[in-house]
Design a protein around this nucleic acid. Structure first.
Lengths: 120, 120
DNA sequence: ATAACTGCAAATCTTTTGCTTACAG
DNA sequence: CTGTAAGCAAAAGATTTGCAGTTAT
């Protein structure tokens, strides 16, 4: 039922997901959102991020695509960019080999200041 | 005053830090811990992690060494290993170049199942 | 009838804020 | 005296839990 919210863009908080879900069916309850998120997370369909806590300690969710991407956030303006990189894939391979761990989740988050913000 | 806690091992929650601080001086207040953490974070002396939320939604702190390391956690037994990798440095350089962002924080967390846990 | 899903209210956990007091320079 | 740090109580925000009512099988 809540797979719908999953179709949305990117980086939604639980709250934002609730809102969207309620546009479709006003009866959906916050708790249902959390329970569904929990489920989707366990099934590996969803990634949970915190985007380096730029905006408080809440979490963000996005549907897990076939390829990992890295989140690059500007600490000044808050803009978040997504980047794919082969190096990250290599890194994972290397780690998997070195540690003997079979990787199921991976996440990289990078913060800094973009050019515009650096000028200020 | 709370630099002491910073000397401790690794991956402490705010709660654990409070406990340790109180062993030294029982008067320290939870709020002080949070305020100090906030400060150290801003100064870049401390990293805040969530270790992929293996154990709930709390946060973990560790003092920031000269070199970034990647946290590799087993989702089965909860063990967390730290790994350094040149590839990660390269990755950061690449991203910095590609996006024009001057990187000040970076974090990579990887989860999976270790050999022992895979057998179960 | 049974099992899975949902709503609701309330609890819990973590972190933050406002205000006041203590302390050092 | 003056500004920074710390305590305390209370608020705020996010997420979880227990229980009861619904629905689909």
């Amino acid at each position: 039922m809540l797979e719908v919210m999953d179709q949305a863009e990117r980086h939604l908080t639980a709250d934002a997901i609730l809102e969207r879900a309620q546009k479709i069916d006003p009866r959906v309850h916050r708790v249902t959102v959390y329970r569904t998120l929990e489920m989707l997370k366990k099934m590996g369909l969803l990634d949970e991020l915190d985007l380096l806590h730029i905006h408080g300690h809440g979490h963000y969710y996005e549907s897990h695509g076939p390829r990992d991407h890295i989140h690059v956030a500007c600490l000044g303006c808050g803009k978040v960019r997504e980047v794919e990189s082969d190096l990250f894939e290599q890194l994972k391979n290397q780690i998997s080999k070195d540690t003997g761990i079979e990787i199921t989740i991976s996440r990289a988050e990078i913060g800094g200041y973009c050019e515009a913000c650096r000028r200020r």
